[in-house]
Amino acid sequence: LETFPLDVLVNTAAEDLPRGVDPSRKENYLSDEDFKAVFGMTRSAFANLPLWKQQNLKKEKGLF
């Protein structure tokens, strides 16, 4: 999966995202380093959170 810089994904409308980016899964296009910096946890820890908590975190970080 291709990764993009944080500033390309945060608070970006679906139509302005790079081609192929799923707007409902912007976090998947962050590098592992950016993911950890944004969410303060690994991808696996994030995946283990309840869906509502994942969505709330994504909203807080501008990735929803």
Rank of each mutant, 00 (worst) to 15 (best):
E15T: 06
K53H: 13
N28T: 10
L57E: 05
E33G: 10
P23H: 07
A13P: 14
L49C: 05
A45E: 13
L51H: 12
P5V: 03
S44E: 14
W52V: 11
E2M: 15
F46D: 00
S31F: 03
N48W: 09
A13V: 08
Q55H: 11
Y29M: 03
G62N: 07
V21G: 03
E33V: 12
S24P: 02
L63H: 02
A45L: 12
R25C: 11
D22S: 02
D7Q: 12
L1E: 09
E2Q: 15
V8N: 04
D16E: 12
L9M: 04
F46R: 00
D34A: 05
V21E: 04
E15V: 09
T42Q: 09
K26S: 03
D32V: 09
G20K: 05
F39W: 01
E2R: 10
F64S: 15
R25P: 03
K53W: 11
D34T: 07
P50G: 05
K53C: 10
P50D: 08
K61S: 09
R19Q: 15
Q54E: 00
N56F: 09
A13R: 14
V21K: 03
P50I: 02
R25D: 04
G20I: 07
K53I: 14
Q55I: 15
G20T: 08
Q54C: 01
F35N: 00
Y29V: 02
N11C: 11
P18E: 04
Q55F: 08
E33Q: 12
N28Y: 11
E2G: 13
Q54H: 00
G40W: 05
G40T: 06
N11A: 08
L17R: 01
L63S: 01
D34F: 02
R25Q: 10
G62H: 07
D16H: 09
P5Q: 05
P23W: 03
K36M: 15
R25G: 05
P23E: 06
P50L: 03
E15F: 05
T42C: 07
F46G: 00
N56E: 15
R43M: 06
M41R: 02
S31W: 02
T42G: 12
E27V: 03
P50V: 04
T3I: 11
S44K: 11
A14K: 10
N11M: 08
Q55S: 08
A14S: 11
W52R: 08
G62E: 04
E27P: 03
T12W: 09
L17D: 03
F39G: 00
M41V: 06
D32A: 11
S24V: 07
G62K: 06
A45I: 12
A14N: 15
L6N: 02
E27H: 03
G20Q: 09
Y29R: 01
F4S: 02
E15L: 06
T12V: 11
N11Q: 08
E33Y: 12
P18A: 01
P18I: 03
L57M: 12
P5S: 09
S31R: 08
F35P: 00
L1F: 15
F35M: 04
K59C: 09
N48F: 10
V21Q: 03
N11W: 11
A45C: 10
S31H: 06
L51I: 13
E15Q: 09
Y29P: 02
L17P: 06
G40F: 08
A13F: 07
L1D: 10
L6C: 05
Q55M: 12
R19K: 15
N11Y: 07
K36E: 14
G62T: 01
F35A: 00
R19H: 15
V21D: 05
P23T: 05
L9Y: 01
P5G: 06
Q54D: 00
F64Y: 13
P5W: 03
A14C: 14
L6F: 11
N56M: 12
A14H: 11
D32Y: 07
V38P: 00
Q54L: 01
T3R: 08
D22T: 02
M41A: 01
K59P: 00
V21C: 04
L51F: 12
T3Y: 15
N56R: 12
W52G: 09
T42R: 07
L30D: 00
E33I: 10
T42I: 11
F46I: 00
A47E: 10
D32G: 06
K58A: 04
K53V: 14
G62Y: 05
P50T: 08
L57H: 06
K26T: 08
L17G: 04
T12H: 07
E60L: 11
S24D: 14
F64H: 15
L49Y: 06
D22N: 07
Q54A: 06
A47D: 12
K61V: 15
K36G: 13
E15S: 09
S44F: 12
Y29L: 03
F64T: 13
L57T: 04
P5Y: 03
V21F: 06
K61N: 14
D34Y: 02
N48Y: 10
L30Y: 01
D16W: 05
L63N: 02
S24W: 10
K59E: 10
K58F: 01
F35R: 00
E15A: 09
E33H: 14
L30S: 00
G40I: 05
R43T: 04
T12R: 06
L63C: 04
E15C: 09
L57G: 00
W52I: 11
E27L: 01
R43C: 02
G40E: 15
K61G: 07
L49D: 00
R19Y: 15
V38Q: 03
L9C: 02
A47Y: 12
N56Q: 13
Q54K: 08
E60V: 09
D16L: 05
V38M: 06
L63T: 01
D34G: 03
Q54M: 05
M41G: 00
K58Y: 03
N28E: 14
P23K: 06
L49M: 11
V21S: 03
F4C: 04
N11T: 07
T12Y: 07
N28F: 09
A13C: 11
P5C: 04
R25T: 07
T42M: 11
R43I: 06
P23Y: 08
F64P: 04
N11P: 03
S24H: 13
K61R: 10
Q54N: 00
V8E: 05
K59W: 10
E60G: 07
R43A: 06
L57C: 05
R25I: 06
E33W: 08
F35G: 00
D34C: 05
R43V: 05
K36R: 14
L6Y: 15
D16K: 04
F4D: 02
V21M: 05
D32S: 08
T12K: 09
L51Y: 11
L57D: 02
G40V: 06
D16Y: 06
R43H: 08
N28C: 11
A14D: 15
T12L: 08
A13Q: 11
K26V: 15
A37Q: 12
F4Q: 04
Q55R: 11
K61L: 08
K61T: 10
V8G: 02
K36I: 14
K26P: 05
E60Q: 12
A13E: 09
K53E: 15
